[in-house]
Amino acid sequence: MLWLLVHDEYGLLGRGGVAREVWKLYFHWYGFLRHGSFPSGDHLWQYPPGAGPVLLSPALLPGLTYFQAFVALTLFTDAAITSVLARVGTRPGRSLRGAALWTAGLPLLLHIPLARYDVQVTAFAVMSLLTLPRSTRACGVFAALGALVKVWPALALIGTPRGRSTREAWTAAAVTAVTLLALLAALFRDPFDFLRQQGGRGVQIESLGGTVLMFARRAGWPGRTRYQYGAVEFVGPQVHTVAVCSLALTATAFALLVLWRVRARHWTPATPYDAALTAVLLFTVTSRVISPQYMVWLVGLAAVCLTAQRTTQRPVAPLVLAATAVSAVEYPACYGEVIHSTWAGCVLMLVRNGLLASAAVLSFVRLCRSGRPAPERPETDAPSRNPDRIPALFHTGG
């Protein structure tokens, strides 16, 4: 992955576009942040305030350039996730499949994970879930830290066991979030400007709605693509309708998750992990934006699920890996095909998003089935009247 990042000027690796995100855009924001201000008015800045400290973190390695320090810290975070997954996997009742999945799955995205900060965000979600059995408060703290960087880690809390565990985890998350937001608001100017930029986002070409518009374009729809809000999006008639439908699907997904939590009666140690993967899958598939780096989240959560031997998500993991591999083909290798909605680009997006949609549906169905109580065992027949045939269980003597 590191070699690919160093040599990403080749056409199939994006002609430098992947690395440019760090040394140009992130470094540009770093200039604002180190002077105590978020990038106010920048339509590309669409991240919660917690992203600021992450983008400032390369300053911890002053002997390196910003790009070098960012990549070094990302590699360190990757190693930390691998170490935690391996350590948990050696405990009784656990498995090393999670560490293996993360190690094998992340390179399927080529060099993209090293040039985005999604590995750092995923680390917060992984730590939140893996600390839950030992400390519900730590679980809430890590989830809040991740949510302040890129909202989705808050979904790690959707499967916490009912009762005291949920109260402690959610309370710790709320207190952490409020405290850190207040601190960031005191240290930086315009910490909430990102909210204005999020509202203007349209339909990205790689989203599920974008796939519909790609095929519509092949059928004669007059829309076109344009780079805006940090992504290539569709513009033209009916785009707003597709965006509204995506938001409606996201609301439906949230309602389904709430319904599952209300009706679930059976929890296992793997349920919080499974619920987190299901939730992020549903929200990713229904989002107006599905960037390739989002697959880092899903690989990380699938790895957490596989650390538990009783997980219901084992059949979902191969679908996530397959979608991850296809994502690397559509970006950066064949991104031009996707932008111009060629038949090759349409098929690529249909396959990738079809795999994601299948994974989301399968994940939710298996999660719902796991929440049903196990059927009671039928009562055993009455013991035989022949005293010689009475089982030893009923004997009182030696």
Rank of each mutant, 00 (worst) to 15 (best):
T271M: 09
G209F: 03
P315C: 10
W170F: 15
W152D: 03
H7W: 15
L350I: 07
S83H: 13
I290N: 01
P161R: 10
Y229W: 12
A253Q: 02
E379L: 13
L101N: 00
A382N: 06
A264K: 04
F188A: 10
E206I: 02
G159Q: 08
T284Y: 04
A172V: 07
R201E: 05
L247A: 12
A143T: 03
G345P: 02
A325E: 04
D388Y: 15
P387Y: 11
T74K: 01
P49M: 04
S363A: 12
S341P: 05
W23R: 04
G210Y: 00
G354K: 02
A248E: 15
F38K: 02
T284C: 12
Y273L: 14
P383Q: 13
C305I: 06
G200Q: 13
D193I: 09
C346W: 00
L25C: 08
A59I: 13
L148I: 09
I81L: 06
G354V: 04
F27W: 13
L348R: 00
L13Y: 07
A248D: 13
A19H: 09
T271S: 11
A360D: 03
T225M: 07
F142D: 01
V289C: 02
P332M: 08
Y294T: 03
C368G: 05
P58F: 01
A317M: 05
H35S: 14
S57K: 03
C334K: 05
R116H: 11
E9G: 15
L13H: 08
L2N: 14
R196K: 15
V119P: 00
W45I: 03
Y47H: 10
R261C: 06
L56S: 06
S40Q: 12
R224P: 04
D8F: 02
P53A: 11
L2V: 14
T396Q: 15
L183A: 14
L367A: 08
G98I: 00
A99G: 05
T131W: 04
F394T: 11
T77R: 01
P387I: 13
P269L: 08
A357V: 10
G159K: 10
V316L: 12
A392F: 15
W45V: 03
E21Y: 09
H395P: 05
L2S: 14
I158G: 09
A173W: 03
V258M: 12
A156I: 07
L55C: 05
A186T: 10
I205R: 00
A186P: 03
D78Y: 07
R226E: 14
C139H: 02
L60W: 07
V119A: 01
G345M: 02
L85S: 01
A374K: 12
E330I: 06
L195V: 14
V54R: 00
L101F: 03
G36I: 08
L157F: 07
A357H: 05
A357G: 08
T268Q: 08
A264M: 07
A143V: 01
A219I: 10
S363C: 09
